[in-house]
Structures are given as C-alpha cells and as structure tokens.
Nucleic acid binder design. Structure first.
Length: 289
DNA sequence: GGTCCGACCTGGCAGC
DNA sequence: TGCTGCCAGGTCGGAC
C-alpha cells in the first residue's frame, strides 16, 4: 500500500508529536511484526528517547538519542496512528480490565510515550516489520537503496544512466528499490502515463529524451501526491490513512491506476490492465509508447 | 551481477 | 446465503 507519498505523510504526522519523547511502555501484540524476538525489541525501545523522525525510501526512520535507529517498514497494509493523551485516557476507562481491549482492530504493537501520547502500529496483513539497529547497520542498509527521487541529486541524467544499464522493462525497473527508492505500483503507473512511456518498453531503450520526461513525471506525481496526503482507496481498514487518521485524496486524481476500461484522460482509449512481474500494470495502449 | 519467481499473511470481493 | 478462488499498494531469498 504505502509508497513514498503515504510514508512521507505518516512521517510528517509522527514528527509533530514524537521528537523529544521517551518510550515509557512498549507492547508487541503480534511478534511477526518485529524482526527477532519480541522481548528483545521491547527492551530495545523502552526507555529510549526519540530524537527525530525521517523517511528513507519507504522506511520510517526513528532516530534514538543514543545513536541507534528504529526502523519501520509498512509493506502492504501497515500504518501508524497517533492517539492523543486525552483519547488514551478515555479509551482506557472504557475498556475495562481486558488488556488491549481499548486498541483498534489489527493493532500489532502499541507504544506509550512519556507525555501520555500513544503510538499504535496497525497491520491487518502482518507483512510489515520493525527493528532497532545500530547506526552503522542502518548506513549499510541505506547504501543499498537507490537515490531518493525528490532529492536534487536525482537528475534526468542520473535516471538515464540507471535506465541504460538494465534489460528489464521500465515498469519493473522503477519498482526496484535499489534503482530508484520509494516508488511503488501506483505512482510508477502514473509517472509512465504522464511521460507517455509504455510500461513494456525496455529500460535501456528509454533514452535520454524520454528519461527527461519520465524524471519530470516522477517528481511531479510524487509532489502532487504528498500535497494530497497520498492515495486512499476508500474501501476498508486495509486502506491507508495518515498518522492522525486522515484520508489521502490522490485517488481521484489518478489517471490510469485502478482505471481499467475507463477512457484515457488524454486520448480517450480504454485503459488496459496487464500483468508484469506478477503485479498489475495499468496503462493506455494508445498514447504510451 | 542481473533477473525471475515464489513465499510471506490476511481480508475483500466476484463468481458460482 | 455460503463457499471457493483470485487478487491486493512490498520485499526478500533462492534459483537460474
């Protein structure tokens, strides 16, 4: 679910409440959402003070003041929710004695901060993962990721060079986090549509002119999606919401993703869904070449 | 080293 | 109405 804009929206929400706060109590309700033993994880975060919150690719990076790094990856259905102190007290009162009864469905971990704020990690599919690592370990992991698409160092020339080295199709290439970090199925489809590039085109055949268009499209669609707080599908609790429960508004502005059969907003040909790398790809067969 | 594919886990939904 | 099978926004590890 969450791609760069959704993770960025959650990080901005967390940044409003988390920096400077200490984790008073950590509870892991389902061990599969932490890497390694749950007990080891709760011991690692309890008592730790959070110095800052950042995003790298689709990782939420909580910097602890002793230099360690608390990483969270949401995968398909993970989300972080902030519950303000007053709401925590109300929920706890109403919950009676049953532990965890005050928590929303599919809450996999809960963290009480020293000011009474509660952070909830909610993940119906339980594919998300979090862990605490050393600064060196995080640097090594981070080094394997591709450039950040919204970083000034990510230029059309850089993208062109990366594309030229790959025989894969451009759609699957852009999903590879070691090539360009943070893109997922939705925004790759949109960026390829905006730049009129077929998802089937081989990466090395994109060339510098199309690469420049693609670069512009990637930056524009990500900027726009962040401005609209990401994409929510308006379906269920599987859906993405921001840290304060806000719904992303980008869905109404998607041109091709999840629009099979609808007319292309540019040429009116029906949008087609194909499968690439076991994933759905939406594109306009007429104006994407 | 690059690429491809299955597995991970669960809920939603279409089709029967 | 209830069951079955497919699909889902991501990533990793193993095989080639």
């Amino acid at each position: 679910m969450p791609e760069l804009p959704e993770v960025e929206t959650i990080v901005r929400g967390l940044r409003r409440v988390v920096p400077g706060r200490r984790v008073a109590v950590a509870r892991v309700l389902n061990g599969t959402v932490v890497r390694g033993p749950a007990r080891r994880f709760t011991q690692a975060v309890e008592g730790a003070r959070i110095a800052g919150v950042e995003r790298r690719a689709k990782f939420i990076v909580l910097r602890l003041d002793d230099g360690r790094v608390w990483l969270s990856h949401l995968r398909m259905s993970g989300k972080w929710l902030v519950v303000r102190p007053r709401r925590v007290r109300e929920k706890s009162r109403g919950a009676g004695r049953r532990p965890g009864a005050e928590l929303p469905a599919y809450t996999r971990a809960a963290f009480d901060l020293d000011d009474g704020t509660r952070l909830l990690y909610v993940d119906p599919r339980m594919l998300g993962e979090m862990e605490v690592v050393t600064a060196e370990a995080w640097r090594a992991r981070e080094a394997a990721l591709g450039p950040e698409p919204l970083d000034p160092a990510f230029t059309p020339e850089v993208l062109d060079e990366l594309l030229a080295g790959s025989r894969r199709n451009v759609k699957e290439f852009l999903l590879d986090q070691t090539k360009v970090a943070g893109l997922g199925n939705i925004y790759v489809a949109e960026a390829l549509w905006r730049s009129r590039i077929s998802p089937r085109r081989r990466a090395r055949n994109v060339g510098p002119i199309r690469a420049e268009r693609l670069h512009r499209a990637i930056v524009d669609v990500l900027d726009e999606a962040i401005g609209r707080s990401g994409t929510s599908f308006g379906s269920t609790y599987l859906d993405y919401v921001g840290a304060e429960g806000e719904v992303g508004e980008m869905y109404d502005f998607l041109a091709v993703y999840d629009r099979e059969g609808e007319p292309c907003p540019r040429c009116r040909a029906p949008i087609r869904r194909i499968v690439q790398g076991q994933r759905s790809t939406y594109h306009c067969p007429r104006c994407q070449r």
